[in-house]
């Protein structure tokens, strides 16, 4: 039973990583950039929920949509102001800018909220589920079920909708997509908006699982989710989901059975081994160019 409950909390943690990793991988696929500020959107999302729910005392039903809206706007604005002018700049400039945006968001949060951790409002009120000796926490149930729905919806959106197909076209060949009449800048904005909306979901579940948030809340899950995206094959959407979930499960199992202190080291060691064996990640494609 211990194993089963460790596995379930690992799956739940893993789906949080997967939600974040999707943001990394989609932005990478379409804008060909690593948005290192993505982890901090999770922190902003968590603080937005905190402000709406704890400070302004709005009900949860209003808090989450407002936080989604706020973070989508933030994501799109960051892209417009910080990344769009660098569309033709070398990748290193864009990467450094993204790190700059990350520090900017962290320090802004530090300035507004101070360095003390805030307790995350209890907006998920689902009782724990008891099955014989096995207890599944309410947060885990919410995280798992909502993440599954979000991932299914996203997969359908990418594979079936006109915008989803346009996103795949843009990710493959921007210039050709533009010649089809696809507004590439708009497509990139939509991608940032979706990534940020997923980050809100991740922020809420992360806050609900760990109970406390601070200005640096986003950085560790951000890095791990980035690892998850690379693990699954950066640019691949099913890869990000798989990578995130595996990462969460490996992390929790190592915490339970090997060592709490070493769990992060084990996670990163697994990444190194996978990349050594398969440099494109689990589901990553080699870009084969035909001339």
């Amino acid at each position: 039973m211990d194993f089963l409950s460790t596995l379930i909390s690992g799956l739940s943690l893993g789906s949080i990583y997967a939600l974040i990793a999707l943001g990394y991988t989609m932005v990478y696929g379409i804008a060909k950039m690593l948005n290192f500020a993505h982890g901090d959107i999770i922190m902003v999302a968590a603080f937005t929920v905190y402000v709406f729910a704890t400070v302004l005392k709005l009900p949860a039903a209003a808090t989450i949509p407002l936080a989604v809206l706020f973070c989508m706007l933030l994501g799109v604005t960051i892209e417009r102001i910080a990344y769009k002018p660098l569309r033709k700049a070398p990748p290193l400039s864009v990467l450094i800018t993204a790190i700059g945006v990350s520090y900017f968001l962290q320090n802004l949060a530090l300035l507004i909220f101070g360095s003390n951790q805030k307790s995350f409002p209890k907006i998920i009120n689902i009782p724990a589920l008891k099955l014989g000796q096995l207890t599944i926490k309410g947060e885990s149930i919410a995280t798992l079920s909502v993440s599954i729905v979000i991932m299914l919806a996203l997969t359908l959106f990418i594979s079936r909708s006109k915008m989803g197909k346009a996103m795949r076209a843009v990710s493959e060949d921007k210039e050709a997509a533009e010649l089809m009449g696809i507004n590439v800048n708009q497509t990139i904005s939509v991608t940032f908006a979706i990534g940020s909306a997923l980050a809100v979901a991740a922020g809420v579940f992360y806050g609900a699982t760990y109970n406390f948030i601070g200005p640096y809340t986003g950085s560790m899950p951000g890095i791990k989710a980035f690892v998850a995206a690379v693990f699954g094959g950066i640019g691949s959407i099913p890869g990000a989901m798989l990578g995130g979930i595996l990462l969460g499960v490996i992390e929790n199992l190592s915490k339970a059975y090997i060592s709490t202190e070493l769990s992060d080291a084990i996670v990163f060691a697994v990444l190194i081994i996978i990349l050594y064996v398969k440099p494109t990640g689990l589901l990553g494609r080699k870009t084969n160019e035909k001339v």
């Binding site: 197909k165 210039e175 050709a176 997509a177 494609r285 035909k290 001339v291």
Partner: peptide, 12 residues
């Protein structure tokens, strides 16, 4: 504009 090298979307 049908670009040089066709530039179809290979993965679609």
């Amino acid at each position: 504009h049908v670009p040089e090298g066709r530039r179809i979307f290979q993965q679609l």
